[in-house]
Amino acid sequence: MGGLRSPIGVYRGQYKTTPPEVLGAAVIDALLERTGYTTVDRVYCGNAVAGGGNIGRLTALLSSLPETVPAVTVDMQCASAGGALEWAYSGIRAGLYDTVLAGGTESSSLQPLRTYGDDDYREGSYRVAQFSPYERGELAMLKGAERTMQKYQVRADELTPWILRSHQRAVLAEKEGHLQSYKLDGEDMERRIALVSKAYGIPQPILTHVPVDECIRPRMSERLLQRMPSLLGPNTLTTAGNACLTHDGAAFLLLGTQPSRYRIAAVTAWAGNPLYSPEGAMEATEQLLTQTGLTMAAIDAVEWNEAFAVIDVLFGRRYGTYTERYNRCGGALAYGHPYGASGAIIVLHLMASLECCDGRYGLAAIAGAGGVGTAMLIERMITK
């Protein structure tokens, strides 16, 4: 198992004119070139906000893969790529496939405005899908994070250290090159986007600069965080500092039956109350540990997608002894959260973390809108 991701772009930043299928195809082509594969048995592609249609198939068709490769789009919102990896793993375990590409691609910048049908009681247009029968609206995820903070009586001073830690660790990971093997070089990314666009007559996206991880803030400070207003009004905690920003990016992994440096040892999916969706990473983790009979003490590296800092607080409260093993390269509060790709991004960061600590077992978990989550146990095959 191995993979690559694009540099991650902020909303209406470096990829503001790059369609998600072009971004995904560029990453797939780079991964195929790196691994020496020319085809696979199936593609599973996570996506949350492209607006419908089988964007996984469109991505595969734009890539160098043969048109005979079937492709499926998986929509579990934030957990979409996690779901794609689960499906790929299950298909290989069942003997249906030998090689599968799984991951996701996302463009928040090009998220379309959609309109309900004429006879639908939910009148008007929307950008954010309905995640729960009890609630709908643009602020549903922010309200879910706020409810979760209230449920666990989280304080503002608990959130701040996690936010600063995320940015500091991301800056250090960039400086020390921990993600170099798992992230496309910016100039190569730029070239591959151009090649995909040219091959199919797509208007050439206008890149504002050579792609980089665009959101990391080396100068993030406690003072700056304290100045950020609440996004939900008086007496609430949710701000632009403790809630990740919406982003653009793509990431894919190649899974197969051939021996490799990494293998997926176990996967699980969880579902619970859709009004408290940030709980998904914690609950999926607990489910996976129970399923495998392991404890957190046996896990050398942990990646939870920190869509909100409350997710970090939940980790710290439950597994405080192991915080040094958690999100070693920083998390989504620093890098951003390209929804449909994030589940694959955190697996790539997990592999980098295992290399850094010379560890064996890693756990990646992600919560998704609608009260879902996925978790995956990765084993690094250590040779003595």
Rank of each mutant, 00 (worst) to 15 (best):
T323D: 10
D300H: 08
I366S: 04
G201Q: 06
C357H: 08
E146H: 04
M76W: 11
L110W: 11
C45E: 07
N54K: 07
G53K: 02
V40A: 10
A199Y: 08
M1L: 07
A25V: 14
G36E: 13
Y134N: 09
L333Q: 01
L245I: 15
L159G: 07
T238S: 14
Y116S: 15
E187V: 12
L348I: 13
S108L: 11
R122C: 00
T239C: 08
A369F: 13
V74T: 14
A301T: 01
L348F: 05
A84R: 10
S64W: 10
L101N: 09
H337A: 01
G2Q: 14
L354E: 11
E303T: 09
L350R: 09
L354K: 09
L314F: 04
E146G: 03
T246H: 14
A94Y: 03
T17N: 06
V372Q: 07
P211W: 14
L224Q: 14
T17F: 04
R328M: 15
H167Q: 02
L231P: 00
M376D: 03
W270V: 11
Y262D: 14
V100C: 08
K143C: 01
L255D: 02
Q168M: 04
G177L: 11
L254D: 09
P19I: 00
K198V: 00
Y339M: 12
E67S: 12
S230P: 00
L172C: 13
A251H: 07
T59K: 06
L113R: 07
L253H: 05
V347A: 07
Y335T: 10
S107H: 05
N273H: 09
P70Y: 07
Q168H: 14
I193K: 01
S230E: 10
R227F: 06
A369I: 10
A284K: 04
F315G: 08
R227A: 15
Y11A: 02
E86G: 06
A140T: 15
T374Y: 11
K16G: 04
A309V: 05
T73I: 04
V302F: 04
T292R: 01
L62P: 08
P133F: 06
Y37C: 08
H337D: 02
T59S: 05
N242W: 07
I163A: 13
I163W: 00
A352S: 12
C45A: 10
I345E: 02
V40D: 08
A140P: 02
D120C: 04
E174R: 15
D248A: 01
G371T: 07
G137N: 01
Y116G: 11
G91I: 03
Y339V: 11
G53N: 01
E67P: 15
R169L: 13
T321V: 12
